[in-house]
Design a protein around this nucleic acid. Sequence first.
DNA 1: CCTCCGTTTCAGAAATTTCTGAAATCTCTG
DNA 2: CAGAGATTTCAGAAATTTCTGAAACGGAGG
Lengths: 183, 183
Amino acid sequence: MTLTPLQQEFVLHFGEMGSRWGINRTVGQIYALLFLSSVPLNAEQITEALGISRSNTSMGLKELQSWTLVRLKHFPGDRRDYFTTPDDLWEIVRTLVAERKKREIDPTLTKLRELEMQGPAGDDYAEARIAELRELIEMMTGFYAEMEKLETERLVKLMTLGGKIAGLIDRTGGIIPSLTKRK
Amino acid sequence: MTLTPLQQEFVLHFGEMGSRWGINRTVGQIYALLFLSSVPLNAEQITEALGISRSNTSMGLKELQSWTLVRLKHFPGDRRDYFTTPDDLWEIVRTLVAERKKREIDPTLTKLRELEMQGPAGDDYAEARIAELRELIEMMTGFYAEMEKLETERLVKLMTLGGKIAGLIDRTGGIIPSLTKRK
DNA sequence: CCTCCGTTTCAGAAATTTCTGAAATCTCTG
DNA sequence: CAGAGATTTCAGAAATTTCTGAAACGGAGG
């Protein structure tokens, strides 16, 4: 397994970006490699291609599996594990968003609710600020839950329409009445 | 400056979450402290409240300023710098999203374009995959650019309407014709 | 129930990031 | 322009994270 210059550069970039994305270099590189590979790869091939230790590969793959960002494949007569990324990029995005929400948002939302449950602490400003933050996060996660339900086709439509949607929203009363009246 | 139990717990939580959010513990704590404070605080107060070194506070504030997440305030007859977070949470969210995009997305988009510019590398699959990824990111950043333009009021409306918007989008031809025809 | 092939675990090494105290710098004010 | 107050810089210490090699584990065949 030798990488083409294109793969090489892509893999290195993902490795470097890893820390910004909340994963480590190795995990970023493994993911990049799988992403560009038309065929599933096993741990040994990944180890060799990236020049890292076998155990590091194992840990990286475990991490990627915990994110459900990679798929396991098997071939008849070969008991090694092979890994791929989904073909469908939208599926990847959905996974990514869902996992980041789970790791970066949900714990805080839980904590905010906890703090509010503890009742008045005699610090009105802080309490109000926490309530406001919780409400905002709830609104955003609620919106996210709606978007998550949409099939990809509509989601793409929504995104490409972009600003046009907003034009339909009236500042005061939701969707422009003259439009919504007629169904 | 002694923290109330409420502030204490909030601050510690933000410190712990820091690493998941791509900032360090101290930066998370400083931000949390400022967020809950009804009045601007100076570096000395922050240092004391969090029990960290003065230089660490300085670095943390510098980091927060580079994210434009805090505001500088001054009081007459006092030449120390005081810091606050914006009152408007939506402004905070906008800043956060903009900065994360700048740090986590833009460099990769640039890199992908670079890779494509380097011309055919004789690796059709990888090239196609990279192009597909670039297109997806472009679509999403394009959509983001549209949303960014909206005033908060409309954005909130959009989010609270949630799934209802999607219902307006026809699977085949954009917004449902019977609605868009009449302006 | 061995043995072989593959994977995972884990303790310590290496690398990186964060934090501190001391010194340097900056800038008002008298 | 000297001195006091405030902030920043920076080299090394401390803490944390990542990576490795060796050993443990697991299970399919013989």
